[in-house]
Amino acid sequence: MNAHAFTFCGEPLQALGSGALFWPREALLVVSDLHLGKSERIARKGGPTLPPYETQDTLQRLADALDTTKATTVICLGDSFDDDAAGQALSDTARATLSRLKAGRRWIWITGNHDPGPLDLGGEHRAETTIGPLTFRHIADAKPQAEVSGHYHPKARLRTRAGTVSRPCFLYDEIRLILPAFGTYTGGLWSSDPALAFMGARALAILTGPQPLAIPMPR
């Protein structure tokens, strides 16, 4: 499994190359910002008709992550759907795939700014949830403790001898951990963006990809 093992607030965690977070002690998989149904929402608003395959692709990658980790609990950290209507408009195939993934697992939907309403998809719906020492919510709090969140879609670059590489990334410091967006149709926000300046001085970025890598968070 391509994963970067690290310790956050005393808990050994694994940042997966796909952008998912795995907590072995709890057999818990966390993914953030799936943005399912994004292409549908854009078309609905009169925009271009993007390739309508991102839901299928995102769920397939989620299925792969569940297969490798054998997780028994899943937390979707908000913005799971591009908007509530996109959640309602989910195709039958996508619903069936989701049900299959949910079968035999505890599944927690955290509310995001894109998907405020509870959906008729089963599972638990929460504004936030706490498991052991860790609290899971969509947007980072101003003064959190051991918090895992999403929302910002962080990405970072690394300059190498052979040129610059940019990748979605995890960000973490002593008190908070921010996940990259897991959804296929998602962009990123540079870790150097002022919106992320609240991260602690010794924060690290874990770049996703075939071999996840930790670097000091680029400011």
């Binding site: 690394l158 190498t160 001898r161 052979a162 590489v165 770049l207 071999q211 890598l213 670097i215």
Partner: peptide, 11 residues
């Protein structure tokens, strides 16, 4: 793969 190796080195 050469690039992944260089990334690791730099990290």
């Amino acid at each position: 793969m050469a690039r992944e190796r260089l990334m690791e080195e730099e990290a």
